[in-house]
Nucleic acid binder design. Sequence first.
DNA 1: TTGACATGTGACCATCTGGTCACCTATCCT
DNA 2: AGGATAGGTGACCAGATGGTCACATGTCAA
Lengths: 105, 105
Amino acid sequence: MIDDVFKALADPTRRRLLDELFERDGQTLSALEQRLPMTRFGVAKHLKVLEGAGLVTTRRRGREKLHFLNPVPIREVHDRWVSKYAEPWASALTGLKRDLEEEQK
Amino acid sequence: MIDDVFKALADPTRRRLLDELFERDGQTLSALEQRLPMTRFGVAKHLKVLEGAGLVTTRRRGREKLHFLNPVPIREVHDRWVSKYAEPWASALTGLKRDLEEEQK
DNA sequence: TTGACATGTGACCATCTGGTCACCTATCCT
DNA sequence: AGGATAGGTGACCAGATGGTCACATGTCAA
């Protein structure tokens, strides 16, 4: 399950799709297709992966299929996994890195 | 760059390796190999990917190669990307989900 | 110095993945 | 009814990926 989420997030096109839905939620396949350098079929495949990972939920409206962002899986990845590595001492390191970069200027 | 990190995290074996280093930092290839159901070569390949993504740094000590966890890239993924989706209203949803699951019992 | 040990390299193979297409179904609109 | 529109399916292909192995290099220790 969590593996599906990581795998889904591994592809830049799929992260792009999440960004698009973050920007405007509930878009149709055709609407999303127009913004990506890819055919409808490619986009549909990616959306299927996102849906399989639970990152996107859908609702039909007539012949259209609306796609909605579902942040819960990302939240779970965040809570159970990412935060484990990102907190707490990494914050000190990134702070240090920022300080060093500032010094360069 | 950030793409390398996501790709590196997509594989369960690599996340397992990060867990092992989280548990005990600075392990050698041979030490890590013994805990994984895989030959040395497979583990070495995965470590190379992790190193390429900046998630693991290495230091040689004689004929050994020590592997260390580097949480900075994960922190950056967290700060720039995951937190965007995970905060803030997802926390309300996960809270709600937990509440609903509690009610089932 | 010789043998055991830790790691690196390049070839190889099976499978997965990203993307396209021809073709199909379902819905809308006049 | 019938054309146009939105989406689904299965086949197909090239390239990436995960894993193994034979072999080579470098290092330790007696």
